[in-house]
Design a protein around this nucleic acid. Structure first.
Lengths: 137, 137
DNA sequence: CTTGACCTTGGTGTGTACTCTAAGGTTTAT
DNA sequence: ATAAACCTTAGAGTACACACCAAGGTCAAG
């Protein structure tokens, strides 16, 4: 399968596939005489693995680690894999916590403001940002 | 006040201040004869405004918009300010939702895996990523 | 008068995940 | 035989918010 058809089947761009190849995430099975990339069953499975891993929030760098483990499963332990997963989960949790603080502060600000058509001279949002320090505590 | 002292007082780097100036977020009141930046009270207040806005999650581009409104308050309405705030809040909410889905999937994966020292040949995390499509639903 | 701490500008590098472009070669259909 | 549709490479551009660097000017203390 040439790159265009392969990309279509997976719903990604050919650029993405070349990018993944460059970054050692997915190398096509072989090349045609003309030098065209030729993708097969194995690459299809691997690409699906990559897309699923992306879907649960792993970065490409993390996926690369997972693939290295996957390639040599018996040289790695369950522990390693679970560790990666939990590390990622905790990182996601931290980011959620930060964004939740943002959301809370923004809600407080929004609730303070009338949102009317009058000039913003006394807008509570602006004056709060000008004056109050403890907005995030 | 020269840039170094000003930066110290605010807990930011001089690079940051020059970056903000370049991007029209904060221009020092004047320059000394030698061409040194000279910061005063007004810039201090404005920088605090910027830092507070950052603290509630606004990006520098959004802060720039807020500043433009703040500079000409009577030419803008409360509505505009509230709109910016609510748009941002909703965007943050979306991102939280996405990350929460990630967190959920990662938890499911982690819980499946024993995490032991044995080889990863049958690791539930890897096999799940290899086989199951509906992980995020 | 020199040393060291500060300041200036312009430019490059970082990380993430692509997207786009240019200049050219290949394949397929008409 | 030629045009359209595909493929190749290397390299630049995008967004975000800085950090870092080089080469040089300025200022206060000893």
């Amino acid at each position: 399968m040439k790159i265009g058809e392969f990309a279509n089947q997976l719903g990604v761009s050919t650029d993405t596939l070349r990018y993944y190849e460059k970054h050692n995430l997915l190398t096509p099975s072989s090349r045609t005489e003309a030098g065209y990339r030729d993708y097969g069953e194995a690459t299809l499975k691997q690409m699906k693995f990559i897309l699923r891993a992306k879907n649960v929030g792993f970065s490409l760098a993390e996926i690369k680690e997972l693939l290295q483990i996957k390639f040599k499963k018996h040289q790695h332990s369950c522990h390693e894999v679970k560790d990666l997963t939990i590390q990622k989960r905790d990182l996601v949790a931290e980011r959620i916590a930060e964004l939740t603080r943002f959301h809370q502060s923004l809600s407080v600000l929004a609730d303070k403001c009338c949102g009317g058509q009058e000039p913003a001279d006394n807008c509570s949002i602006l004056t709060t940002l000008e004056d109050i320090d403890g907005l995030t505590q």
